[in-house]
């Protein structure tokens, strides 16, 4: 690998690109699949594909309006084992989870409460909402992206 010229350029750039981890084709392919899933869900099933809404509305544990949510989640949960069988070469080595246990719990609570309060997450607002040009989703996506950038900056570069 001849990384010299690139890293020299990077020292002068405002944003240095992490070429080692950059996976444009895999990420674009994965993104297209996410879009196809969202497209099928609205056109075939008439539903918005939003994970926090699909999961969160199950929590009051009431009857009714649950079958489609559970069916979707069963499929989602079957993704790792099926991909391992069908296309093992595409699998990650292992997810890099650097956060400690306390941080994981705090993050989970924030994500759970925040997505319900804000009526959506990366899928419902970020994919479906932006695809619909929904002003609510545009604001929500700007807010959670901004908060994500800010949090990582504080943790990695200020603390």
């Amino acid at each position: 690998m001849q990384g010299g010229p690139i890293s020299q350029q990077e020292e002068h750039a405002i944003i240095a690109i992490d070429w080692i981890h950059f996976t444009p084709w895999a990420s674009l392919t994965g993104g297209l699949l996410l879009g196809i899933a969202a497209a099928l869900f609205i056109l075939v099933n008439g539903r918005i594909l939003g994970i926090s809404g699909i999961v969160g509305a199950l929590l009051p544990l009431r009857r009714g309006d649950t079958g489609w949510r559970i069916a979707f989640l069963v499929g989602l949960g079957a993704a790792p084992v099926t991909l391992r069988l069908l296309a093992p070469a595409t699998l990650l080595a292992a997810p890099r989870i650097a956060a400690d246990v306390v941080t994981i719990v705090a993050a989970g609570l924030l994500v759970g409460y925040g997505t319900r309060l804000g009526s959506g997450c990366t899928s419902g607002h970020g994919i479906c909402g932006l695809s619909r040009l929904s002003p609510r989703s545009l604001v929500a996506t700007a807010c959670f992206m901004g908060a994500g950038f800010a949090t990582v900056f504080v943790i990695r570069h200020l603390i």
């Binding site: 994970i51 989602l76 993050a107 924030l110 994500v111 925040g114 997505t115 990366t122 908060a147 994500g148």
Partner: peptide
């Protein structure tokens, strides 16, 4: 909407996980 999205984003940035 705004406060919920900000809280979600903070949690996303802490651990790198969103719900899906």
């Amino acid at each position: 909407l705004v406060i919920g999205a900000l809280l979600f984003g903070a949690g996303w940035g802490l651990a790198g996980f969103c719900p899906g």
